[in-house]
C-alpha cells in the first residue's frame, strides 16, 4: 500500500468536455449549496469524476484462521485511490483549488464477476480571492462535505485538506463456531471473534489516520465506518473508514449565537 498508484492519463473525451468548461460551469450542487459555496468565497468550476475498473478477485484463506487478506485490502485501496487520482487530475486541468461533495461508489457489472468499477465524483471549486487553497502535496483538496458543511467548516477556522480513507479486508475463521452452539443459558464472550473484528476496524482507522498525517492535517471530521461483504461471502468483510482531513486556516472565526425559533412548516 506504500506505492501510490500511477495515473493512466485521461481519456480524450474527458479532455474535450473539460475544455468547454472554460466559460461555463456544471455541478450537481443544489441551489442552496451553490449559494453557500459562493458565500464562503469559492466558485464552482465543473463536475469532475474518475473511475477505475479493478479486478478484486480472491485470495486463498485458511478456513480456520482469522486474518487480514492483505492482497484484497491492497486491491480495494488502490482501486479507490486510482479513481480519486483521476478525479483530481480532471480538477487540476480546471485549475481548481479543491473538490467538494465527493462520492465514492462501487459498481458491480454482470460481465465481470471478480471485478468492480470504482467511481469518484464531485464538484471542483476555486477560490475567488486568487489565493491557493491546495493542500500540502500541491493537489486540489478533496472532501465529501456538502456545500452547507463546507461553509460551516470554514466558519470554524478549518479548511478541508483531503478525503482520507483506510480499508481492511478481513477473513473471520469458520472453526470455533461449533463451540458456540453448546448449552443454552451460558453467556460468555467469544474473545477470538472480538479480537479479530476489533483488530480489523483498528487497522482501517489507523490507515486513515496515517493518510491524514501525510497531509499534515490537524484532524479528521465526519468519519464513517462502513462494513461490506461485497461478493466474497459472509465470512470475508471489508472495513472501510472514510473522513475529511482538515487543517487550520489561521484565524478562528466564531459562528453567531443561534436564535431559538419554532418552524411552523411541514
Amino acid at each position: 500500500m506504500s506505492d501510490t498508484p500511477s495515473s493512466e492519463g485521461l481519456p480524450k473525451d474527458a479532455g474535450h468536455r473539460l475544455e468547454e468548461l472554460r466559460n461555463l460551469f456544471t455541478s450537481d450542487l443544489s441551489v442552496n449549496e451553490f449559494l453557500l459555496i459562493k458565500e464562503a468565497g469559492f466558485h464552482p468550476l465543473g463536475f469532475v469524476m474518475g473511475s477505475s475498473i479493478y479486478h478484486t478477485g480472491i485470495q486463498t484463506r485458511k478456513w480456520a484462521k482469522s486474518q487480514e487478506l492483505d492482497k484484497l485490502t491492497e486491491a480495494m485501496y488502490n482501486a479507490r485511490e486510482l479513481a480519486m487520482t483521476r478525479m483530481e487530475e480532471e480538477a487540476q486541468q480546471l485549475d481548481a483549488d479543491g473538490i467538494v461533495g465527493v462520492r465514492l461508489d462501487v459498481n458491480y457489472y454482470e460481465w465481470g464477476s471478480d471485478s468492480a468499477e470504482f467511481i469518484a465524483m464531485g464538484t471542483a471549486v476555486k477560490a475567488e480571492n486568487g489565493q491557493s487553497y491546495r493542500n500540502k502535496l500541491g493537489l486540489p483538496f478533496t472532501s465529501d462535505l456538502s456545500g452547507q458543511d463546507f461553509w460551516t467548516l470554514m466558519q470554524t477556522g478549518y479548511l478541508p485538506a483531503g478525503l482520507v480513507m483506510g480499508t481492511c479486508v478481513y477473513h473471520i475463521a469458520h472453526r470455533g463456531l461449533a463451540q458456540t452452539l453448546s448449552s443454552v443459558g451460558q453467556n460468555v464472550e467469544l474473545p477470538n471473534f472480538t479480537q479479530a473484528l476489533y483488530e480489523a476496524r483498528e487497522l482501517a482507522m489507523t490507515r486513515m489516520q496515517d493518510e491524514a498525517g501525510r497531509l499534515d492535517a490537524a484532524g479528521i471530521v465526519g468519519v464513517r465506518l462502513e462494513e461490506k461483504s461485497h461478493q466474497w461471502g459472509s465470512h470475508t468483510i471489508e472495513f472501510l473508514s472514510l473522513g475529511t482531513a482538515v487543517v487550520r486556516s489561521g484565524a478562528e472565526v466564531t459562528l453567531p449565537k443561534p436564535t431559538t425559533i419554532i418552524s411552523l412548516d411541514h
Binding site: 442552496n32 449549496e33 453557500l36 452547507q148
Partner: peptide, 13 residues
C-alpha cells in the same frame, strides 16, 4: 407574530 425565513438547508442534510 410569525416571521418569514429562508433557510439554506437541504432536506437530507
Amino acid at each position: 407574530p410569525v416571521e418569514l425565513v429562508i433557510d439554506l438547508d437541504d432536506e437530507q442534510r
